[in-house]
Amino acid sequence: MEDIEHIEKEMKLINSDGRRLDGRSFDELRPIRIEAGVLRRADGSAYIEWGGNKVLAAVYGPREAHPRHLQDPARALVQCRYNMAPFSVSDRKRPGPDRRSVEISKVISEAFSSVVFKEQFPRTSVDIFIEVLQADAGTRCAGLTAASVALADAGVPMRDLVTSCASGKIDDVVCLDLNKDEDNFGDADCPMAIVPRTGDVVLLQMDGHLTYDEFQKAMGLSIDATKRIYEMQRDALRRRYSVTLEDILKEAPPAAAPVEPEPEQPREDDFGPEGI
């Protein structure tokens, strides 16, 4: 028994220089990469890599809500399914919805239903699918961040993008964006989602314990980080649609000049719905 206690004291999640296991400082995010419009069949989609997390989000709709009795004659439903692939974690996850994923689906759909203009599409549903391909703590935040890019990509009217980030406590230090080890061996994890323009909080959960001051600090860290993530989301969307704009710029001058450019195999990428 003594030995175990001794080992636990040796295990340091954050060292005296304020560096964490992966070398980050307390207020540093893991590297994030977002890509919009990655799926052809979905109305909107996005893919995010957030540290070790790899998450795919797809959006359909507004479309006819099924089953019919769920339809609301006054507004659209915002439905969400958060799902983890069996291979997303080190021990195979039993496929299918479980207590945890049902809960996450619920809180995410509620976060989005406060920003989507639901009244514009009575009797329909907007369906959001979040597939976690690889998990490394903070998947709900990654999923939510990707799903909001996917919603914008689908052209669903909404007040703002939703941005999400977690912060927590490791070794009594409040830190931003915990990774897997920090989440497992840390003291608390507190994911939240905000609407950056107004600062509204649309998701707030906590696992573990934080004092009031710690919570205030965690919240401050998250809100600060969501501003950076928000820019990445916007950037992903701009990149997706600037491809066409760049092509236009390339195409526009030759249209005036009498040269025959023979543009790169005119419509090579023009496969129909059955294509590829």
């Binding site: 914008a152 009217p157 909404m158 007040r159 993008l161 323009r197 969307l237 701009r238 600037s242 710029l249």
Partner: peptide, 12 residues
């Protein structure tokens, strides 16, 4: 420059 030509706006 293309952004200036036809700016893309994002929700919010």
């Amino acid at each position: 420059s293309s952004g200036a030509l036809r700016p893309i706006v994002i929700p919010g």
